[in-house]
Design a protein around this nucleic acid. Structure first.
Lengths: 153, 153
DNA sequence: TTCTTTGCAAATCGTTTGCAGCATG
DNA sequence: CATGCTGCAAACGATTTGCAAAGAA
């Protein structure tokens, strides 16, 4: 996770302008391990900057991805998530609540295979699918006859 | 890759009806290693059944995924691809032409890690990103001053 | 006949774009 | 002052849904 200052410095270096909106988005990302979507980020930031538009959030996120400051992530829930962690790592995806967790090392940090079928491999995306502890508990509770709250639906 | 007959048998077993549309989609998938999208499949099948609707292709593919006869695949090009190969395997994704190839064993067939961060892991999706041989050639040709045809844009 | 599937059109949903006004450097 | 950024509204593209007609069991 790169520090906010470094990211802002990148923006400046690119000839970009440091606006309140950008700083806000960068700060929000820096302290966020939830792999938010553009909409989730927008919803959170509106509390601090009510006038912030979703369009701007999308634009800012695209810039950050282009600069390599954050990563784009698709898990199969039909939305694009963003990850401020740029070091290679696998992701744990809960098939029930759809939440995403970063996998601890060394998962996803294995060396890239090379020369596979003539491909020049430069990157990898690894998703580990399963049940998160909360959902596993919720399911076994249901199975036992006691329905439970659905985690973040 | 499951034989068409087995897939059709599954449909019957589920109480489903064996329609010309379904048979056509199953047959098309069985002999297809291109990881087509619903639209691509639809376009190809229209040649044989001009009245076939895209809606039906989507419905059939969803059924097949639900039965576990094919796999859903998202690579980042914004569309959902389908893979008739149900054995676990990694995918080689070209970052230029976006085409998808199946990675040869043992890639993607490593045993699943277990108990990571309390997760009960049941599946994995592994994408290896890089340049396919064709695109690598095309790029070096361009760099050399001789622009080339763009592979399947 | 009964129940599923088909296919059309319309609706959704996440994301992108056109453009005029505004703020940063 | 010159760009690049913002935000609104409209456009978009992939996928889904509502529903009546058609087909399989």
């Amino acid at each position: 996770v790169r520090p906010v200052e470094a990211i802002i410095a990148d923006v400046r270096a690119r000839g970009g302008k440091v606006t309140a909106q950008r700083v806000l988005v960068c700060e929000a990302l820096a302290g966020d391990r939830s792999h938010p979507t553009a909409e989730q980020l927008h919803a959170r930031l509106r509390a601090r900057l009510p006038h912030l538009s979703l369009t701007t959030v999308y634009a800012t996120l695209s810039d950050l991805v282009a600069c390599g400051d954050i990563q784009r992530l698709q898990t199969g829930d039909g939305q694009v998530h963003f990850d401020p962690e740029t070091e290679p790592h696998a992701h744990l995806v809960c098939v029930r609540c759809q939440r995403i967790h970063d996998a601890p090392p060394p998962l996803g940090r294995e060396p890239l295979p090379s020369g596979v079928a003539g491909f020049a491999i430069s990157g990898r995306t690894e998703l580990l699918l399963g049940l998160c502890p909360e959902c596993a508990a919720a399911l076994s509770a249901e199975a036992g006859g006691r329905p439970t709250d659905q985690p973040r639906t």
